[in-house]
Each structure stands twice: as C-alpha cells, then as structure tokens.
Amino acid sequence: MIEMNNVTKVYNNGAMAIDNISLKVHPGEFVFLIGPSGSGKSTMIKILMREEKVTNGDVFVNGRDVSSMFRSEIPYLRRSMGVVFQDFRLLEKKTLYDNVAFAMEIIGAYKREIKKRVPVVLKMVGLGDKKDCYPGQLSGGEQQRAALARAIVNKPQLLIADEPTGNLDPETSSHIMTLLEEINAGGTTILVATHDINMVNKMEKRVIELSCGRIVRDDMRGHYRNEA
C-alpha cells in the first residue's frame, strides 16, 4: 500500500525534513504517525500526496511510483486516497450534500451515481439528517464527520488524516476515531498523523514515531509514549 525506501527530503532553504526513512504499510493497516511538531509528519503526508517531491529515495503508494510520476498523473494518485485535515476544509457556500457530491463531480461521476452514493456516506458518518445544512451551522465534530464523508465518498484505498481530532473535544474525538475504525474495518488503509495521546493509547494500533525526520520507533500495537 505504502512503501518508502531511503527517502530524504531537503527543502530549498536547506532544512532536512525527512532523513533516510524506509517503511512499509500493508493494505488494511491502521497506522498512527506521531512525533513533536517539526518531526516530519506533515512533510511525510505531503510526500505521499505528491504535494512535495522527495530529494532522494523511492515512494510507492497504491502501486504507483510517487517519486518519479509526471504532474499529469498526480490527480489519479490522489483519487486513490482520501484526505482529512485538522481544519476540515469544507466549502462554506455549499451544503453538506454539495460538499460531498463535489468530490464525486470533479472526478466525473454521473449524477445518478452521486445521488445514490452521497446520502449513504452521509448516513454512515451520522449526518443523514443534516445534508441541507451549511458547514457554518454545524459543530466541529459534525464538520469533521462531513470532511470524512467527503474523503471516503470515492471509496479510496488509503485514507490519510492529518490531526483529525486536533480541534475537537475528547468525546467528539472518540466518535471520529470510532468512525475511522469502521472505515478501516471496510478494508481501507488508514494513516493518521496526530498529537492525540488518548486516542493513540486507547486504540492500540501500529505507531510510527518520528523525530527530526527519522523513524525512532515503529510498534505494531503501540502507545504514544513507549512506557507500556
């Protein structure tokens, strides 16, 4: 699913963001990516989405060679993955239904397909009755669930979440994590970059810890701190 071989990323200003990382994430895995700010989590996500190009090494995502792909291939890589951000990134002027439908429209899905799929996904994340609401009318947790719905509506093989619970209270965070677990149970590989100690410790999934651009820990059933 994800394979990184001796990956290094040095930004134009000379800052080393990723330092010779190698890792494998298998299909269907649920992986937490943890580490302090500046440890390289966001750069790693950007590399996986090909928002940033690696300086050295190979990156494969869903069988595609991300490190050497042409610009024109990037959209097709991104269609095979869903992305969720800390700040939800919903379109304020569109209803929830339209926000989710938008992700299908831009990849050329047919209207009847959209009409069938969007309500199912909204129901799945518990927002079936709020499809006509605008993001501003929803709580943070609901907005994040809507963002999740948008991320999974095109049935991605890989779901990347960058601090998905960063703006949410513990109870709401727990709901989001439960949803991610359900999505994972459906076969989608999940990679979550987070600072949320409670969630990581509670869920006991694979934990990859980064520090100064290097992998300092990779536990199959890990915790935020390795005291367990």
């Binding site: 024109s72 890589l77 991104r78 269609r79 990134r89 938008f102 831009i106 990849i107």
Partner: peptide, 16 residues
C-alpha cells in the same frame, strides 16, 4: 483558493 486546494486534494485534474 480553498476550493481549488480541495479540488486538488480530491484529485481534480489541472484541466478541470
């Protein structure tokens, strides 16, 4: 800008 960023994240082509 936001809309365009979202379009890019969900895989819209440059032409689209």
């Amino acid at each position: 800008k936001n809309e365009i960023a979202i379009m890019k994240y969900v895989g819209a082509t440059e032409d689209f």
